[in-house]
Design a protein around this nucleic acid. Structure first.
Length: 264
DNA sequence: ATACCTGTTTCCCG
DNA sequence: CCGGGAAACAGGTA
């Protein structure tokens, strides 16, 4: 589920735990989300510290703890956060449970493609500071987009949009939404996009990122009614704008929904 | 049983 | 060394 706005929303679900001490850390003994991270270290460091801050950047999350620990979290394909009551018992797919006096903060991830990290230090970890500019900030510019399109000119634009080095937070449904709105075929090679369409592409990237954060990011749920989002998930539906059939096919390794009538 | 999946990393190729 | 594509990761769901 989680791309840009869903990650922001999931992160906000742990807000009730801000300012409260972590009393117990329960780590799934097998889950792959720990990767290089030692479960024992995570437990020793977090127990007794307050959850002090929570923020997201694209698909990345960073939780600050009062004692100078920073827990990084990526939700992968099926990760999600929730708040349960203080007596909650970890379930089969609960990768991590942080128990506080009045609630339990839960990170659940059945497919275990998510990832947990821990850094220590006064300031935020270096990897966090080095994340690329958000699509909604002033440093994300038309010049940057042009450079990326040129550098990866042989890459289908759909595949390029999913590259987190340039479009942090962009996920599969967002990329389809952007290309549908910009009127660009997903398989079009990035280097072949006309100058006029480059401008449109830039505007739609920003529009979709802002619109998603404004709806999904704030309240969970779905984007506005007139988004491709609502018809992209199954075969045989019509393009809301042209009335012509939508196509669903694998492009850039991912299921892609697009409107041949509108996207050239 | 089969196919599919909102993400990333690794491996292999040219 | 690089860019690009496919496979792998693991389990739920249709």
């Amino acid at each position: 589920m989680p791309e840009l706005a869903e990650v922001a929303y999931a992160c906000s679900l742990w807000n009730p735990g801000l300012g409260s001490v972590v009393e117990e850390v329960i780590c799934h003994p097998k889950s792959r989300v720990y990767r290089e991270l030692d479960r024992k270290v995570l437990e020793e460091e977090l127990v007794g510290e307050k959850l002090a801050s929570a923020e997201t950047h694209g698909k990345q999350m960073l939780f600050g703890l009062s004692g100078g620990n920073w827990m990084g979290l990526h939700l992968g394909m099926t990760g999600w956060l929730s708040v349960e009551d203080e007596n909650y018992e970890a379930g089969k797919h609960d990768a991590l449970v942080l128990r506080q006096s009045k609630r339990a903060l839960v990170f659940r991830d059945p497919r275990q493609f998510g990832k947990l990290t821990l850094d220590q230090g006064k300031g935020k970890p270096e990897w966090w500071e080095l994340l690329p500019p958000l699509m909604t900030c002033p440093e994300f510019t038309m010049e940057l987009l042009k450079k990326v399109l040129k550098r990866h000119g042989r890459q289908p634009i759909k595949a390029l949009l999913l590259d987190q080095r340039y479009f942090p937070g962009m996920g599969n449904w967002m990329a389809d939404e952007v290309l549908w709105r910009a009127g660009i075929q997903p398989a079009k090679l990035s280097g072949k996009i006309e100058t006029s369409k480059q401008k449109l592409l830039f505007e739609k990237i920003v529009f979709v990122a802002l619109g998603a954060m404004d709806s999904v990011g704030k309240f969970g749920g779905d984007p506005p009614e007139d988004w491709l989002f609502h018809v992209r998930w199954k075969d045989g539906l019509l393009c809301p704008n042209s009335g012509e059939p939508l196509v669903r096919e694998k492009i850039g390794g991912r299921t892609t929904c697009w409107s041949p009538a509108l996207q050239k």
